[in-house]
Write a protein that binds this DNA or RNA. Structure first.
Lengths: 270, 270
DNA sequence: ATAATAGTGTCTATCAGACATTATCTG
DNA sequence: CAGATAATGTCTGATAGACACTATTAT
């Protein structure tokens, strides 16, 4: 058990004398695609931060920050998310690690991308703070990524197209974004959004992920709209209900009567 | 376009004077699960490296190494793979980034995990080199991960079980490994293998990934065996052929006659 | 009653899973 | 032709997709 190395040291002795070498070490950040529904479920919102420093000064960027020494990437993402929005205990999942040597013009910075899905899009600090944050309308179709906020007059548009790649002896298609508006997202944050959306839509097939954007108690019409917003296409009501039937249970209450006519049942996730 | 920051600098001026701050920066490595078929397709092999230094001295570990300053993680993984095995242009894909602060007892080291699938398991340097490498038999079932090499008398076994997690308001199950043999894998490499296999099996559903373990020209019985090895269960021949029918095209040759009776057609990926 | 949305019934084409049969090769 | 593997045929039950219908509420 107590092996010694070529210098005659045990593991304990080795670790006591170890000092990290002078390998060049990259900075590591987490960046997050944070999505929440509009209050009336008429669309999705994405959280962006306005950069106040070079590079990409005055560009909008995904929220994120450096990973501290004593925390995992997940913990860093959860911390940043809470600092920015107050949100905690929301769905938060690693997507991909972006590491092209020149993705940040300052120095070597790798970014571990996360996606977060929240049942709400709570107010964020806006106006003339040092760090300006805002929720933007978010549209992701087959050939277009459109992020805009009419209140502050910003529109960021990317055209999406598929490009063929080869990996081993297998070819496959990948989605790439091309800037179409005057404004752009900072760094490679367009790529982060594209990868996150692809992963998100794939995971909807075999997880309960859309439930994380619903309230604890929800109506089936609302849940269906969330599915439709995330998937980007509409669903047949009857088929949708069959699909989720064995994952939900009725609460026994009905929603508070709105302007509408018939009241819908409230359900919760089993 | 030419915005200046709070110090009155343009982006160009800012970058010229920029020096990376003294944030603590982690070391970043890539680690790879490299799988190849046995020559007779009777099983899978995994490539491991014997550690010659603390920590985990004399333990077997996934191949990998530090990401250099001028390369992406993908490039680092491809370089390490070629150095170790001579393999290039094989299927290579990022799996997950492991970042628990204490996953390496020396210092902060994050690992970006990759998986590689090769059509062959070429000889590697073994014996008494400083860096000893070897292919191990690889078995991954619902409840067991078993890695062994009878030539060198090593067996590493983990029991697999499912543990429930919560993410946002969604619960889901995850696979965890518990060491069952005297020998173990170094670091959290058991977790890396588990995550890689889960991702691999999921991706078989919607990609041509198993073709990357077949030769350019292959017979359908061979391709089916590869599918079965990767998925971990057997398939019905007729159903399998229907499933892959529209992705393959006949070469017009038959395989060189082996001991068997009828010769099978050769196909290639469309 | 009417308008509007909530919720259910049911048909069909497709497909995964299962098993049975035919075809082709060697000795 | 006997033995072995390659390749194809076909039945069945489940299910995704589509559309039509009934139910419940406020005014």
């Amino acid at each position: 058990m107590e092996y010694k190395d070529k210098n005659g040291l045990t593991e304990k002795e080795f670790l006591a004398q170890y000092s990290p070498g002078d390998y060049p070490r990259p900075s590591v950040t987490v960046d997050m695609m944070v999505l929440g529904p509009k209050k009336d479920y008429s669309g999705l919102k994405i959280l962006l931060i306005k950069r106040g420093a070079h590079p990409f000064i005055n560009c909008w960027a995904l929220p994120g920050g450096f990973v501290h020494e004593d925390e995992s990437c997940y913990e860093a993402a959860a911390r940043e998310l809470k600092e920015e929005t107050g949100l905690k205990n929301v769905f938060l999942e690693q997507v991909y690690t972006f590491s092209k040597p020149n993705r940040d013009p300052r120095t070597r910075v790798m970014s571990v991308a996360y996606m977060a899905l929240s049942p709400v899009a709570p107010p964020v600090r806006g106006g003339d703070d040092a760090l300006e944050a805002a929720w933007f309308d978010f549209e992701f179709t087959d050939n277009m990524l459109r992020i805009f906020n009419d209140d502050i007059g910003v529109e960021i548009v990317y055209q999406l197209s598929t490009k063929r790649f080869q990996n081993g002896n297998v070819r496959y298609a990948n989605t790439v974004a091309a800037q179409k508006s005057k404004s752009q997202l900072a760094f490679d944050h367009d790529e982060i959004i594209v990868e996150s959306m692809i992963k998100l839509r794939r995971e909807i097939e075999y997880t309960d992920l859309p439930f994380s954007m619903a309230n604890k108690e929800f109506t089936l019409p609302d849940l269906q709209v969330i599915y439709e917003l995330l998937l980007g296409h509409s669903l047949y009501k009857a088929n949708f209900r069959i699909m989720v039937a064995d994952r939900i249970e009725p609460v026994g209450k009905k929603e508070k009567s709105i302007v509408g006519r018939r009241m819908s049942e409230l359900y919760r996730l089993k």
